[in-house]
Design a protein around this nucleic acid. Structure first.
Lengths: 342, 342
DNA sequence: CTGAAAGCGCTTACAG
DNA sequence: CTGAAAGCGCTTACAG
């Protein structure tokens, strides 16, 4: 099926030089090349419409100039945003990117890691699920370049790019308090797998309540699978003292809450204040507009790439480290009591 | 930097067989292999933690089992949905996927095509921009497997997977009429680059108005760059006879319209009916919920892969063809006059 | 300034 | 049932 490609030998023959010389030309080592030779090769390449074969080059060079990116769940707008930044930055550095979506499934994640390694990627950027610790450990121990994003894997000595999750929750709680909401509940997806940001966000909730001298009510903490989140939300509103405000842990829990609110005619802002972690594309056009805690997604993606590339060109490797990024609040009507709903 | 990998030779030595035999093992050609040999190789692979090098394999086999996907603009939710379907389907067939975002820039698109070819992808699925006709022509003439999605490139004899755009607009217009809206305007992004779906959607608008015996008002047709779309929408509402309803050409024009509506306190449903092409994730939680014309994104992605894979295993190639998919309407409140807004 | 040779890690006819 | 040999398309020391 594939077209028979013209190879470096064809070019060499056509230009009446050796393969070595053509290779020099391709790699822009012009120092010792006569002007005339160069011209001849240039012409031959054009005439034959020659396209070098990167697979062969990679084999010889033992480097594919490709980075694998494995994302736990591509459905989060956070993930897509960070991935775009990663890809852009990698591109600027002449690296290709292969993106894989693990779908929150450690088995899938494992398969992807193996495929990517077999394909000889030069490094990995991963939003890890919570399986595969050992696999990661092996990789890191053998010095394979890897950077984690959004989450880190515990007991692993690796670089990670993370949100300051505690701060994010504090921002949200503080903002809600300032706006007159006191009984604040929090929604996150299931803690079952001990995914770091979720734990940190719950922890952040507790410490924020503490800090602002508010009681911590366990029944205000809803950590559950998305599929049953709406039931959890319903429970919240059936409490004797339902919460006055909600902090949504990410864009998917937000979606569940918005669905519940639409179905039960809960007026966001007036009936219940709302702040969500993660900026979503529709935040400003929602009615009422949604107050969000935005992550600096571009900077985080950029940093991940920087950390990874750093591992290539420096012999002395820095100690692995967790890099924390500051969240910022984008205040909109969903967290204002007065006149929120049109 | 890369770890020195164990190779097939190491395994062969360790298992005391030849490389050929190990290769047979790897490719599961067990027919002529003694049980005992197989066991020995299996053991050696495990002990050495051997991972075959796919780059070498690809070079020898002249096939990378990788498909390149180039998307004109990844920001459309349509694109992300189709891409997910493509990736899933490709995965099921043991192909890897490399996704590139051309950002609506033909130059970028060209660069990606070249990179992907250099990387020896076995085929290409592309949501084309409107440059690079010649490049595509060359590829197709040389029999390189390629399938277009969402748009086709004119004068090119290639397979394409498309929405029935005319039908989509007819559905929208008909639905709005049924709901009592008669003066219907349409919003699409700039026609400058003659991107097929936009043309077809405008054409569909004209034919729909015709069919339903409504006058075609040129000032109800707004085709412009997203950056000035809001001005165009403003013009619409400053007309002596502003439209009663809007058909939005895609999710990005929708976003512009929703922004305008929010800023100018235009009540969707009551003040102006709205139907948009493309289902968006927030359609059902928007207030009011948005009536959308959904594309069968999964089927379209699946079909694209099927067409592409078909080119690999059949010698006789079918005549290239444009496959049209039916849109379906998801009616929600934004196109209901009564009680749309809470 | 340029070429011959070896080698990257596989696969596959072919011989035995 | 298994191995030796050639070759995929490059790159790179090294010799001249």
């Amino acid at each position: 099926m594939p077209i028979k490609k013209t190879t470096i030998s064809d070019v060499a023959k056509h230009a009446q030089v050796s393969k070595s010389t053509v290779s020099q030309y391709l790699n822009e080592r012009f120092e010792y090349m006569r002007e005339e030779t160069r011209k001849r090769i240039e012409k031959a390449i054009k005439e034959l419409n020659y396209q070098p074969n990167n697979v062969a080059r990679s084999l010889k060079l033992k480097s594919t100039a490709t980075i694998g990116v494995i994302v736990a769940n591509i459905l989060h707008s956070y993930s897509t945003q960070v991935i775009r930044a990663i890809e852009d930055t990698l591109n600027e550095n002449e690296f290709s990117t292969i993106i894989c979506n693990a779908d929150d499934d450690p088995e899938k994640e494992k398969k992807y890691i193996e495929t990517l390694l077999a394909r000889q990627v030069d490094g990995l950027i991963v939003f890890p699920t919570s399986g595969n610790q050992e696999l990661y450990k092996r990789l890191i121990d053998s010095n394979f370049p890897i950077v984690f994003v959004d989450r880190y894997v515990s007991d692993l000595n690796a670089d990670a790019v993370m949100l300051d999750n505690e701060k994010a929750i504090h921002l949200a709680v503080e903002h809600l308090l300032t706006n007159g909401y006191e009984d604040i509940a929090v929604l996150t997806t299931s803690l079952e797998n001990a995914v770091v940001p979720r734990l940190e966000r719950i922890q952040g909730y507790r410490s924020a309540m503490d800090r602002f001298k508010l009681p911590i009510r366990e029944d205000y903490i809803k950590s559950m699978d998305l599929s049953v989140m709406k039931d959890g939300i319903a429970e919240l509103f059936q409490l004797e003292k339902p919460p006055q405000a909600i902090v949504s842990g990410n864009d998917l829990t937000l979606m569940e809450f918005l669905k519940y609110a639409a179905e039960h005619n809960v007026k966001i802002g007036t009936d219940v204040g709302l702040v969500t972690i993660d900026e979503v594309p529709y935040a400003s056009v929602h009615n009422p507009p949604l107050t969000t805690i935005a992550q600096p997604t571009f900077e985080m993606g950029e940093k991940a790439v920087e950390l990874l590339l750093h591992k290539f060109d420096s012999i002395k490797k820095n100690d692995p480290k967790i890099y924390r990024f500051d969240p910022s609040i984008i205040a909109r009507k969903s967290s204002e009591k007065a006149g929120a709903q049109l």
